[in-house]
Design a protein around this nucleic acid. Structure first.
Lengths: 332, 332
DNA sequence: CTGAAAGCGCTTACAG
DNA sequence: CTGAAAGCGCTTACAG
């Protein structure tokens, strides 16, 4: 038997308007508050979110869209988002888009149904269709990543090119001379940026920058990384270091190296990117470029809350600097 | 500028009732359908989920509550739940309860606000308060795990005791004689069951079953596992195998073994439980007891959908048998 | 087949 | 301070 405002009002002997006011801290007499509070408690009244939301125009739900729940980098982001948002009484809806633009666009369309008050999205591929769908959105969105300049969204991103530089400098500094790169798909934002950054970093040095020192995995996953890493080590036996575009790909390099009889870090130094929890779980522990995933999550959530509070705010761009976390796979 | 039924009705020159019927495939003339469909398309009309939900009593949202988004076992469960539910047009809301009973109870209470039509929950600790909150729920819930017998919920669980047996038999079969156990907190359901199963399994054999061969991590995490595993190997240097209560703890054993100068599997065989994605990412790859997490997720989602469709269904209990997945950390 | 009306459960001007 | 009423955007008996 459902208990609504009416039941509480009847029990308290007041109108439903008074119940609503008393419960929401609006103006009400002490006596009303007393009666209503007791009646509500006795009946175990809980306001219906949907009705409230319909009336108020806000759902108190935020959506956080990630490309792949299996990628550990999102774990920290998600926790940070939840923490930043908890105080404000929002619930966080996680949506896993499976690295598919279609799924992302579908999500954006479903958001038009107004089940969320805001969106934090970390798109892997920024296509025209994606941008169109994003522009159609009727709720605020914060993008973790990059967007063409003419799209006025709040953006939180890292400087992964600088991150690549940190990694390369570290490898060179520790005496490595033939550095390979295992990238993810280059039609993704991170794949494209990191790939270019790697080429640029090598170009600044005297080091060999052969095409066969680079490989591209079909996706940013361990399984695809394993295939590509095996190929890479087959093809370029002279490598003494490999930078991988994320930690899952780096884990794959560790495995491929082992199969090729290479010791890490003695024969081959390996560096990942993301500094996810996986980095310390691997063996040897993984030197990784932290791209501030927790920080990005936190800042994105804050920007979103700020924009929900005041939609007229100018769009902001926050850049989180990368940091090299040195562990055993590529020591000093 | 918001477009509602009224705008579509005005443009199509019909009543809002007709718009609703035409759009929902209710009875309507071909001409009305034609007019309405076009008007809706031209205006980019998207029905408001909240209003629909309020009227219909259903939100088309399901909640999936996991203890820790950082635990890779939930990745497969989540994917399976999403897949099983996709066809039915439900959105899956992931809630991360951070291994805290309080957070779980808070979640159950928030569910009373009716933002979800159903819940799949995998509780770590089944306390009285938890059960009370579960019983108060006004929407169907499916539990992944165990519950006292007198609670008539749909349950999907594995037989982790049988899983422990598989692991022990495998270790004995491959010549191990001094088997340690790294458990998670024993006040959790899995911790308690797996701990007892380990004791029982050893009791059936001739093997030594000393108290100092067992250790308990403060939580089912890598970090807590590392502390406990290090202690265990310090205290019991004679072990030739360790079974860990999940894959994260097993990863910790791998690290602790390395620090103790033990080779895996030569000096120490290691087996995990869950057969999560982490198992093949570790090095050596981890032999692990699959507890059918994807299957549990899928079955739980199916039970939930069935119960939403027909709340009068008798409560079911589904048991997924475990399976040993042999990899390098404990080969045949 | 169609429209006017009621109602899902709330919140909030508006009178009093 | 309080209550009656309107309305958020839908769906669906009920007449016609």
């Amino acid at each position: 038997m459902k208990v609504t405002l009416h039941e509480v009002a009847a029990r308290a002997g007041v109108s439903i308007a008074s119940v609503s006011r008393a419960l929401n801290g609006e103006i009400a007499s002490a006596r009303t508050i007393e009666l209503v509070t007791r009646a509500a408690a006795e009946l175990g009244y809980i306001p219906d979110q949907r009705a409230r939301s319909l009336k108020l125009g806000a759902t108190r739900q935020l959506t956080f869209a990630v490309a792949d729940v299996g990628n550990p980098v999102y774990v920290q982001m998600l926790r940070a988002v939840e923490d930043a948002v908890r105080e404000s009484g929002y619930r966080v809806l996680i949506s896993s888009t499976r690295s598919s633009v279609e799924a992302e666009i579908e999500l954006l369309q479903s958001l038009l149904r107004r089940h969320s008050d805001g969106l934090v999205i970390s798109p892997l591929r920024v296509t025209e269709d994606f941008l169109t769908a994003l522009d159609r959105l009727t709720i605020p969105a914060v993008v973790i990543g990059r967007l063409p300049d003419d799209h006025p969204y709040d953006i939180v991103r890292t400087d992964s090119a600088a991150g690549v530089d940190l990694a390369i400098d570290h490898l060179i500094g520790s005496g490595r001379r033939t550095i390979g790169f295992l990238n993810g798909p280059t039609d993704t934002t991170p794949g494209s940026i990191r790939g270019q950054a790697f080429a640029a970093a090598l170009a600044r040095t005297e080091l060999p920058a052969a095409e066969e020192h680079r490989a591209t995995a079909a996706d940013f996953t361990f399984a695809d990384g394993l295939t590509a890493a095996t190929e890479l080590l087959d093809r370029a036996p002279g490598l003494d270091a490999v930078l991988a575009a994320n930690d899952l790909l780096a884990a794959a390099v560790l495995h491929a190296a082992h199969r090729h009889g290479l010791r890490v870090p003695e024969d081959l130094a390996v560096i990942g990117m993301d500094d996810s929890e996986l980095a310390s779980q691997l063996m040897p522990t993984l030197t990784s470029v932290s791209l501030g995933s927790a920080e990005r999550g936190r800042r994105a959530a804050e920007l979103l809350l700020a924009r929900i509070a005041d939609p007229s705010l100018p769009a902001q761009q926050v850049i989180i600097p990368p940091e090299l976390i040195i562990r055993d796979s590529a020591p000093s």
